[in-house]
Design a binder for these strands. Structure first.
Lengths: 359, 359
DNA sequence: AGTTAGCACTCTCCCTTGTCGAGTGCTAAT
DNA sequence: ATTAGCACTCGACAAGGGAGAGTGCTAACT
């Protein structure tokens, strides 16, 4: 599919104008936008051909043109210019992320990245993270509080610490706790969740001569932990910003999308790019999900060290400033990746070069 | 203010009909609703007087009547009949709460109560909790991981356990950690947040001969914890259900309320009942906040033991089935209170008696 | 052959007009 | 005090018409 240079310019003008105003674009407006001096009539002829090719659409006979999904696609693939983030934007992203980095909580950092994305793009954003590497228990401590109470503290291989206060019915003395913890450190560290089997648990029970079910409680806590940490975390933010856009003034339409986004399972099935830093753009009917048929999704992957990666994405109307949103996404993903993997808090996020867009 | 019995019946009929249909109620409809055999004309006269008294309103000359805020108030205070929860409802509440009780997380139990409230009432719900008693540190442990890493584990007086993994730049050996923890246990336990002063911190630093700022880091963590736990937690759920009601079809109006609810500070300033189990109903303009001027708020207080209490509330249109919502709220609050305070997991929540409504 | 001006045509938007029905307020009779 | 009757008011809805924006087509121009 090779269009004349002029057709491309007209298509670009229509897309950019329409993204800006949300009104069908007429031939006269295109002439104004276009640098080249051609008449409205010429542009009309060209636009008629673009409709023929399926790149533009006409809401009705005597209205201007709007881009079709295929038109957006072509625009995104070939015509889109790189959007340069403003100083304000880069500064806000860097400072927001660096601030949270200080407080240290991984999940809240990812959440914040989502919120930030939503705020800057004015569209709902979602953030997923998942662990790729195996997570195991690195270390195990039992703290004696009183004879009916102790605390389990578990250090995971990804440096997360989890704890649980346990009340028991039959008294227990400190030496017994120490023994318990020694055994657990010996036999439960370094194991992934699947390898903590019932066989292992009952073997441990026998070794410790435990009839009170204490071993089972502690082992259960470990399994729960490992499952929880391994499973992908999804968080959506800024759902309400949908209503700020004219295409979602219809409450039902917006609600369908918000409902869709609130389902974690569905989120994980959204399109995702092949590698870190790439941006995957899915336009209107390219979306498999019915609910998103007239919306577009942009997603970027971030890598945080070897054992963790995730996705940040945005959902909005097909009439979206793809270039601007892509630039934001890419910058945030890069920053997040650096913060999560390095943990080198002194290293500042640098300004970005250019954006690679992947189909 | 004493109305004739018939006026009261008419008012009740108008309120109940309007709550049901959301359409202004005409004299003919009232006659149908009313048991007594009177003509439409009589009802018209009566309704005209009720308008005079400010209890009913007329959207325009030739429309039916709708209740004014004062009308709702009178209805709630004097005319409302007690709503009996259905078996399904009580069963759903009990099982949802008991289920989460098992998993043991306090915050998530409160959250779930909010979600449940929202789902059952079909209105957005909020849930707050706050500690009334003083919270202190009950116990203090430092776990040695390697010479550059240790874990702080803190047991609070309300049985919460918190931890933090700390990386340090200058190496530290286990004996030093033990010493640190002994000193902290001696001087930081039993203190409320305000009593951890900079003076205390520097005194501790001197006592331990600490120049590395380690004491400051640990003390900072303690202060942070105590603040976090003391401050009220607020969670809103079901915001989107607003859109299911005709009075919030206007996106802007609904958005204003949702925005209002998303501000934790404002939530804590919402009206709250005097004592546990009472329901506080605030109708339309009785609300101080402008954003809620044409909505109503129902809130119930729950007590969970001596040192914790909270609020569950619901926001909806003034045209609301106050009786039904109040019954749900009261039942949920009672269940939540029992679960949080007793922790006696075997004791089932019993069916409720009657509801006391407080102005 | 590509480009342009001119012009009739089409369609939406918005305003006005007219009709219908629900519900009222008033009056006079019971 | 209650009721029947009746004129009146107002919103909802459909129909009609003018204005404006933009198109498609044709014929002339380069």
């Amino acid at each position: 599919m090779s269009l004349t240079e002029r057709k491309k310019e007209i298509l670009r003008a229509v897309v950019e104008q329409y993204v800006d105003t949300a009104e069908p674009v007429g031939s006269k407006t295109v002439v104004q936008q276009l640098g080249t001096a051609v008449s409205a009539a010429t542009v009309r002829n060209e636009m008629a051909e673009l409709v023929e090719l399926g790149l533009l659409e006409q809401p009705h006979t005597s209205a201007g043109r709007i881009p079709s999904p295929a038109g957006y696609r072509l625009y995104v693939n070939e015509l889109m210019r790189r959007h340069k983030l403003s100083q304000d934007d880069t500064r806000e992203i860097s400072s927001s992320l660096n601030l949270l980095q200080a407080s240290g909580q991984e999940q809240s950092l990812i959440d914040e990245a989502g919120r930030l994305t939503s705020r800057l793009t004015t569209y709902p954003a979602y953030a997923l993270s998942s662990m790729t590497g195996d997570i195991t228990i690195a270390r195990f401590d039992l703290i004696y509080v009183d004879s009916f109470t102790f605390i389990i503290v578990v250090l995971l291989s990804n440096d997360l610490v989890k704890n649980k206060l346990v009340h028991i019915t039959s008294p227990l003395q400190q030496p017994q706790l120490v023994k318990l913890s020694t055994v657990f450190n010996a036999s439960f560290t370094g194991l992934t969740e699947e390898r903590i089997t019932t066989a292992l648990i009952s073997a441990t029970e026998r070794a410790l001569n435990d009839a009170s079910g204490l071993v089972a409680v502690i082992a259960g806590f470990c399994i729960e932990l490992l499952c929880e940490v391994k499973s992908a975390q999804a968080r959506v933010s800024g759902e309400l910003s949908l209503f700020d856009h004219p295409e979602y003034q219809d409450v039902g339409k917006a609600q369908r999308i918000i409902r869709y986004l609130s389902d974690d399972n569905k989120l994980t099935r959204l399109p995702s790019p092949e590698s870190a830093g790439e941006i995957k753009i899915t336009i209107g009917p390219e979306n498999l999900a019915d609910e998103l048929r007239d919306s577009s999704v942009l997603a970027v992957r971030y890598d945080a060290g070897d054992d963790m990666q995730g996705l940040i994405g945005v959902v909005g109307p097909t009439r979206m400033d793809y270039s601007r949103v892509a630039a934001h996404l890419k910058y945030i993903a890069q920053g997040l990746g650096e913060l999560l993997s390095g943990g080198i808090s002194d290293k500042k996020i640098n300004e970005l070069g250019d954006n690679d867009i992947e189909e």
